[in-house]
Amino acid sequence: MRSMTLLTVLILVGAGTASGQRTAQEIIDHVDRIMRGESSRGVATMDVVTENWERSMTMEVWSLGTEYSLIRITAPKKEEGTATLMADDEIWNYLPRVDRTIKIPASMMMGAWMGSHFTNDDLVKESRLIEDYDIEVSHDGDREGVRVWELTLTPKEEAAVVWGRIEYQVRQNDWMPTWARYYDEDGALVRTMSFSDYRQMGGRLVPAVMELIPEDKPEERTLVRYTELEFDIDIDENFFSLRALRSGGR
């Protein structure tokens, strides 16, 4: 499925004939799927800077489709072993210090994950951008010497999304996103996600660094850097069990 998308993308790029709306959809779909393999495993560090504190942690992440994921903190020492499991629409946390697994209610889904500016929903997002938004190419040309598309995503009439609109900038040569800006309904910028450090990982070109900056607190940020990433690994649903949550995927 993943390779199908790439194939489609390649064909589209090669042909370069797709009509506006269709191209826009394909671009966003591609961007949306960059980090969504059928299965994946990765190691990432996350740096969170807030007004009052800073923290950095390293984690190992496994995923299978959109239904299953397991995240385990490996550093710092204090948090080591803390794990989050999402399986069958349930989210569980494991706290090694007290040796307890806790089921997180749905109402916590939009809570900040591990104190970062990402929400649980960002991590386990199921809805696809192309399903919820009407997408248009708003700019097709050079920005600072790079040929890019800028796409405007407006939510469909009854789509259950909070944003008033999202704007994406995507490089034309390799279809890599450079930034995404999230606006509220009054057109005010709420948060900016920027992508950088594009590199080959697990046989794919991906932005290894993602940085999220909330607009109302510009001095705060959350930065995620993937140091390892592999796709289409050999795991199945049984891997995402409460036992795996406690043992951290081992």
Binding site: D89, S107, A160, V162
Partner: peptide, 19 residues
């Protein structure tokens, strides 16, 4: 007239959202 997205578990056990 602001957008408000409500999220909850539906009768089929899935998490679903409503604008």
């Amino acid at each position: 007239n602001s957008r408000l997205v409500l999220t909850a578990q539906d009768a089929d056990g899935e998490i679903s959202g409503q604008l």
